[in-house]
Structure formats: structure tokens, C-alpha cells
């Protein structure tokens, strides 16, 4: 006679009192973040979604206008220009930061006892306030007396007008952005140090050269970190604000001087619409469009990561 042993379905398994108690504690510890998320993120996001369908100047009650803000946004050349600038910056900044950071991390890994010192040195610029970085680079990028053009002059190169020539404004901003690549360097260094030595030894035994070891051992093993920094840097680039705002739009004094179309980033334009022109409904629509763009780009990156990223414990 066959006997059947019924096992409870995994979802219906009754939890032990200990598990329930642990779950309660877990929720208790999570509560501050959950409450913070609901109050400071989810709530405002939902409210701003509603506002994006209204005409709202912060002072008077919002008036429902349907999709007008989105239509206006699509037709606004300044939105298109600022979005184009932002995407251009992201396309330049992200690969550069990743490549240079990886190079620096590889060099740092080779440094022996002084590694701690150099790690600190590379990370220190990250601690510089963003406003100070903006001001600093305005001086460094000065056409006639800036350190960068003076350096180029030593090689007989006449440096460009970094802050006024529309062609060179964005490269100047990208140059500035490299100032704070220390975080990415540290992440890569940690990842490099976690690559098992026996993989390199095995590669050596197989006759792999330096490039082959890098290509077939290092890169796959740190691909998780590369992917993480790709996403984080992309999101940060699309939200670029403080340094550029300080350089070109920062205060009444600088607003009364020169600012360039080429330095108009999406979030800067959004900020101006919201707080200088009091178009909060329009700015809300801009914020949601940016949110969707970032979401889309991130989803594409995640999809691609399935093919290229190796996570420890996976059967790849």
C-alpha cells in the first residue's frame, strides 16, 4: 500500500514563534527607513506626479491642466537642449570615469606598503564640497591664467576658452567631474583585491599574458563592481547639478554675468523653472520625465548585465 506523505506548500508553512519574533524585530529595525521612504520619497513623488498635471506656482492652488505640461515640455527647445547636454555629458563622463578609475585602481593594487596613503590621497577630493569644486575649476579653467592652459602652454599648445567657447564648455565640465572619481577607484580597488590569486596562477600556467589575464580573469571577476558603478555614475550624471550651477548659474552675481547654453543641464533647467519662474507643475513634469529616462536606462543596463556580469555563487 502506497503511503503518501503530505508536505505543506512552502508558502503556507507555519512559522515558528522564534521566526515570527525575529520577523517582528526585523520590521521594527526597518521601520525608520520604511517610514522615511514613505514620508520623504513615496509621498512627495506621488504628490509631484499629481502636480505634473497641474499649473502650480507654489503660491496659489494648483489648477488641473491635464497633459499640457508634458506637451509643452516636448515642444520646449530649452528642455531639449538641456537634455541633450545632459546626455552628452553622461556619454563622456561615465566611460571616462570608469576607465580612469580602473587604471588608477590597477596601479594602486601594485603599490605595496604605501597603498593606504595613496588610497586616501585619491579619495580626499571626494570630500571637497561640490560648490568649492565648481569655484576651483572656474579658476583652473581660466583661459589666460588658468593652471590647465598654462600647463598646455608648456607644450606649445594654446588652450581653449574652456568656460566661454560653447564647444569647450562641456569638455571643461567633464574635466572637472574627474576630480571626484575617488569613490569609483576605491570600489574597483576593493573588487580587484577580492579576485582569487589562484585564478591568476591558473592563467599563468595556461600561458596567459598580462592582457589575457586582465581580459579573461580580472574583468569578469570585477564585472559586478563595474556594473554597479556604471549604474550609479549614469544616474548621478543625469542628475548633475551643484558644480555646474555654481560655475555658471550660482548666485545673483554670476547670474548677472556669463552663462552658456552649453552648460544648461536638465536638472538646472528644472530648478530654474521651479524656483525662479515659479512653474512648479511644469518642473514636476520635467522631474517625472527624467525619472522615467533614468528608469529606462537602468532597466536596459540591468538587462544587458545578465550577459556580461558575473556574480559570485552564480553558475556562469
Amino acid at each position: 500500500m502506497a503511503t503518501t506523505v503530505s508536505t505543506p506548500a512552502p508558502g503556507r508553512r507555519r512559522r515558528t514563534p522564534l521566526a515570527r519574533r525575529e520577523a517582528r524585530w526585523a520590521y521594527l529595525f526597518l521601520a525608520p527607513w520604511i517610514v522615511g521612504f514613505l514620508v520623504f520619497y513615496a509621498g512627495p513623488m506621488i504628490a509631484s506626479l499629481w502636480l505634473s498635471f497641474t499649473e502650480y506656482d507654489v503660491i496659489n492652488a494648483p489648477r488641473f491642466t491635464g497633459l499640457d505640461n508634458y506637451r509643452e515640455l516636448m515642444a520646449d527647445p530649452q528642455v531639449a537642449r538641456s537634455l541633450g547636454n545632459t546626455v552628452y555629458y553622461t556619454a563622456l563622463h561615465v566611460p571616462l570615469v570608469m576607465a580612469i578609475s580602473l587604471g588608477l585602481a590597477l596601479l594602486l593594487k601594485r603599490v605595496g606598503r604605501l597603498q593606504g596613503f595613496f588610497r586616501t590621497v585619491f579619495y580626499l577630493p571626494v570630500m571637497t564640497p561640490a560648490v568649492a569644486v565648481g569655484i576651483l575649476f572656474l579658476l583652473l579653467l581660466n583661459t589666460q591664467d588658468g593652471l590647465i592652459n598654462r600647463g598646455l602652454a608648456l607644450f606649445g599648445i594654446e588652450g581653449p576658452s574652456w568656460t566661454t567657447d560653447p564647444t569647450w564648455v562641456m569638455p571643461g565640465i567633464v574635466l572637472m567631474s574627474l576630480w571626484s572619481l575617488g569613490s569609483t577607484v576605491i570600489i574597483y580597488l576593493a573588487a580587484l583585491q577580492n579576485v582569487p590569486r589562484d585564478l591568476y596562477e591558473a592563467a599563468d600556467l595556461d600561458g596567459a599574458g598580462a592582457w589575457a589575464r586582465f581580459r579573461h580573469v580580472t574583468l569578469p571577476m570585477i564585472s559586478g563592481s563595474l556594473f554597479f558603478t556604471l549604474i550609479v555614475n549614469t544616474i548621478a550624471s543625469l542628475q548633475m547639478f551643484t558644480e555646474v550651477y555654481t560655475m555658471y548659474f550660482g548666485n545673483r552675481e554670476t547670474q548677472n554675468r556669463f552663462n552658456s547654453d552649453a552648460a544648461s543641464f536638465y536638472v538646472i533647467h528644472l530648478f530654474q523653472e521651479a524656483f525662479q519662474f515659479l512653474h512648479m507643475g511644469f518642473a514636476s513634469a520635467m522631474a517625472w520625465v527624467l525619472f522615467l529616462i533614468i528608469l529606462l536606462i537602468t532597466l536596459v543596463q540591468v538587462k544587458l548585465s545578465n550577459r556580461f556580469v558575473y556574480y559570485e555563487g552564480e553558475d556562469q
Binding site: G43, Q239, A274, W288
Partner: peptide, 19 residues
């Protein structure tokens, strides 16, 4: 729209894009 919602909404614009 309540005042609370308006204040919340004001924060929302920046939550999405700027700190």
C-alpha cells in the same frame, strides 16, 4: 489641494531630481 499635500509635493520635485 490641502496645504500638507502642497508642501509634500514641493519636496517631491526635488526628491525626484535634486536633493
Amino acid at each position: 489641494m490641502s496645504r500638507t499635500l502642497r508642501v509634500t509635493a514641493l519636496a517631491g520635485v526635488l526628491t525626484l531630481a535634486v536633493s
